[in-house]
Design a protein around this nucleic acid. Structure first.
Lengths: 346, 346
DNA sequence: TGGTCTTTGGGTAGCGCTACCATTTTGATG
DNA sequence: CATCAAAATGGTAGCGCTACCCAAAGACCA
């Protein structure tokens, strides 16, 4: 007889993987005891714990998290839903989330909405089908169904990137209006008056649109008329930045400064300017948002409002984990703020 | 009596979610029929299919994929294991994989190894605990246990980035040695003779080390001695590129060309050169690998060996999906090759 | 010493779904 | 119209694990 003898009579499926029952047999204890030894070691004696560990080691047991999830509801999976991966903005955040979650024994399920709130709603439905332990999603605006479902779902939810009133559960991000205001004010302080806002994808990226709104507010507060807006339909890229530069130079009156909806666009402008010999900031000042790594390596370095994106990801994961461990996080809504990094492009 | 009356007697857990049994009751059919209507619509009559769809709609049923996974083994999750997200190289690949998988109704579980094959082995064990439908992992070198486990696991596995002999299952990538050779040859063809290889993280990033090996081979084939190597311990970044430029300029004899282990490093060198007024390629020619988007926007644009990373991701997902649908992919091992994009930096 | 409380381990019954097999219904065929 | 194959539907039994409850054994107190 071989290792399978103890199985149930039919065994019409199953992949021959070592199961918890196998470990229990090897260790001479009940399956439930093995479960406890592995999940709540404090509830079993040292001796049993050691026997179980030895059996696990000997058999090469790897828990079937699916089965555990079905029984316990909660699979140690955290779906992270973001608009897009093609945009560098989210990468650092995701990376930080992933690192922190993985360190705590959770896995990240990554999904993208392509900036579409209906798609987001569908994705939320789908990922809830995995009985995740918690959810991280982007922004505070969602399909009403998403909000209802997640609220009654009752497990930890973190909304990232944006902060504001009335999150579904917890929230870590920055104030988009404040970002927009701060950059406009900076440009005004520097003496620029013909300030354009260049934005990509504003119809979809409502957080970029918030920055524009803040921008316009600041101009209004300074007693200036609303600034012109250059808008591009596609997502931000260096290539769009190059087009934006051309468009800016063609405007009359010629603008003296541009605030870009993000660093990618701004970097594209700087790169194109450098290629064409446009002097920055003398001929055109350029400001960005979000503080991507490239910004400081351009010449001149880009003036940007840096947001601590890694920190945002880390804190989002941290909040989630705290709640998963039964704690009540001190500050479930966190505005991480931003820093003006003057690079010389303004 | 309310909607719960039909439940089993105890119901000590469960979250009140609509289950397949609820749908069956509403549609007046057996649960198994609902399962079929949803998963293999061809096996039920039109009428039943319609009734089930109506019930699903009415109740807002969302399948519990965990339960399905337990029963059927296969959760429509595809773990994707890469060394790091902090490196742009992988982002486009991941993005493409994710898009293709999501379109087919699969979710991507993303995990990072931090370039450590032991960690990778642990991660493979963990993610197999989710009964995934398939697995995508990076490179062809793995812990022996990973290879054994995945081979006997029997479900589709794709190894990406690198191509070579004897993959675990399927393989899409490029030949690292050929990349290294091609760049060295290009630099030689251009007349450069004092060629340095600058690499980041070569101890961990063995694919970058392969490029170095190819580089040295090409020099040897040209009858030249092995070229000097500048090596940095940390992962590639623009900042490392800036340091590399300084180190290159300090070398005697002063090199006339540098092949960089990837585009990030090369871009860092170009950006720093631009800042310092070093003329590229007159004072120093710079070549990169992998073809990141930034490369073409630098001035001069970076000469790079472009790899179709989106395509790689798409094809990896495609191979996996074909196998999941029972097909036998025509070419389970694919060398995607690369293109020399001459930007002017060489 | 008896009683209560606390640990420690086990038995049982599902979590929600689908594989397997059995049964019923339909349709084709001679 | 009987006969048989094919299609459609249902019943049953798990997938591997853990929540809930209980029993036994020790710890502690009066």
């Amino acid at each position: 007889m071989d290792r399978q003898e103890g199985r149930s009579r039919k065994r019409h499926r199953g992949q021959g993987r070592v199961t918890l029952a196998d470990v229990a047999r090897q260790a001479g204890v009940a399956p439930i005891t093995v479960s406890r030894a592995l999940n709540t070691p404090g509830r079993v004696s040292e001796a049993v714990k050691a026997r179980v560990d030895a059996a696990v080691e000997a058999l090469g047991y790897v828990p079937n998290l699916i089965a555990g999830g079905l029984a316990a509801a909660g699979t140690r999976v955290i779906p992270v839903i973001v608009p897009s991966l093609a945009i560098l903005t989210f990468i650092e955040v995701i990376d930080a989330i992933q690192k922190r979650l993985e360190a705590a024994g959770y896995q990240m399920l990554l999904a993208t909405t392509d900036w579409d709130l209906d798609r987001e709603a569908g994705l939320v439905d789908t990922v809830l089908g995995y009985s995740p332990s918690g959810v991280i999603l982007t922004g505070l605006r969602h399909h009403p169904r998403v909000i209802t479902r997640l609220k009654e779902w009752g497990r930890p939810v973190v909304e990232i990137m944006e902060v504001g009133e009335d999150p579904i559960d917890m929230n870590v991000g920055v104030d988009g209006l404040a970002l927009g205001r701060a950059m406009a004010r900076h440009l005004l302080d520097k003496g620029y008056r013909r300030i354009v806002f260049a934005g990509s994808h504003l119809g979809h990226d409502y957080r970029a649109a918030q920055r524009l709104e803040g921008h316009q507010q600041a101009l209004a507060e300074a007693g200036l008329p609303q600034g012109p807006v250059l808008e591009y339909a596609e997502p931000a890229s260096y290539a769009v930045g190059a087009r934006a530069l051309a468009d800016l130079l063609a405007m009359t009156p010629r603008p003296d400064a541009v605030a870009c909806s993000n660093d990618i666009l701004a970097s594209g402008i700087l790169l194109a300017a450098s290629k064409q010999g446009i002097r920055i900031p003398d001929e055109l000042a350029v400001g960005g948002y979000l503080g991507l790594p490239l910004a400081e390596h351009l010449s001149p370095p880009l003036t940007t409002l840096a947001v601590a994106r890694s920190d945002m990801g880390r804190q989002a994961a941290e909040l989630l984990l705290q709640r998963l461990e039964g704690m009540t996080p001190a500050e479930p809504v966190r505005d991480l703020g931003f820093t003006l990094v003057e690079g010389g492009s303004t």
